[in-house]
Design a binder for these strands. Structure first.
Lengths: 166, 166
DNA sequence: TTACTTTTTTAGATATACCTAACAAATCAA
DNA sequence: TTGATTTGTTAGGTATATCTAAAAAAGTAA
């Protein structure tokens, strides 16, 4: 039942860029897909033929390219994985956005639902923290990463003084 | 300069399993590679021919399979990426080991050096923390993930009481 | 509308990565 | 040592994913 057919990374990438172009321009064009995918237009044509046969895109000869509902559903799934990974890398780990973007592109095809869920919750955990800023422990990590040293921990000192240490 | 030729994920996988088999048995055999890669032995033979031509493995007809120094160097790089990703997922995020293993296998081919470095340091940050246990903030996340709620924070309360809040 | 330009498709090639089926070599057992 | 079993290779086929070069369709401008 359901047997959700597993797409190749490549096809997921095509769906993703078609999705992005559709959002931007209403429909996608072979030329633009070609540019974003960094392949020749003839490669796009043959990819579209496959995706078309699989019912994921509508593509008439010399005409527009659009995702079918099923194609859009799959594109959104990939996009969501991408965004979560990107946000985790850039917002939590402070990876440079361009690097985070490339890494997210690489990982988005294979990350499991379970891991995605964890990471989603982790982002939420960090970004809805009571401090309403980057939490202390994460600032500590930033410092640790930069300097190799741990910052003096005020709260630990406080705790020790007040509670008589442990 | 250097021009480090980029291997396909597939070839990296072959190097990895050959590496693992070598560590276990001294040399790798086609049958065992086939089993670990979940492909037929004829596929292994043709993969080995390519890797051989690229100078990454030694493979005599009907004979043993061994990594060249260059092959071993590359295998180690992949292995290292795999291990860091696996540890991050299983030890920090508490992902089930089997799932973490699969995810690490998927991500190990594309993770950038910068991201790998961050994650490496993040693991170190967590595992060499002064508490010598899973740090409080991470236990808080475990709780948050399980229940959707944040645990009452003793230290924050303490801080507020003593310092007069903020 | 005709001519030029751009876009897209087709045809045909290459490379990877897998398969099955048949064959060959190596290993093991009687 | 010979015969059976296991292991490995070859031959030939499929599918994906790319390319170049040439042809066709669509768009643009005089």
């Amino acid at each position: 039942m359901e047997e959700e057919k597993k797409l190749s990374s490549n096809k997921e990438d095509y769906l993703e860029v078609i999705f992005i172009l559709e959002k931007k321009n209403g429909v996608a064009r072979v030329k633009d897909i070609s540019r974003l995918m960094k392949v020749k237009t003839s490669s796009v044509t043959s990819a579209l033929n496959m995706l078309s046969k699989e019912g994921l895109v509508i593509h008439e000869r010399y005409g527009y390219v659009k995702l079918t509902p099923e194609g859009e559903r799959l594109a959104l799934k990939v996009r969501k994985r991408h965004n979560i990974l990107f946000r985790f890398l850039s917002e939590i780990l402070n990876i440079d956005p361009e690097v985070a973007e490339k890494d997210a592109c690489g990982m988005e095809h294979s990350v499991s639902p379970q891991t995605l869920e964890k990471i989603t919750k982790f982002i939420e955990f960090v970004e809805t923290c009571p401090e309403h800023t980057r939490p202390d422990w994460l600032r500590s990590f930033d410092y640790f990463f930069k300097t190799g040293r741990r910052p003096r921990c005020k709260i630990r000192k406080l705790k020790k003084d007040v509670l008589g240490g442990k």
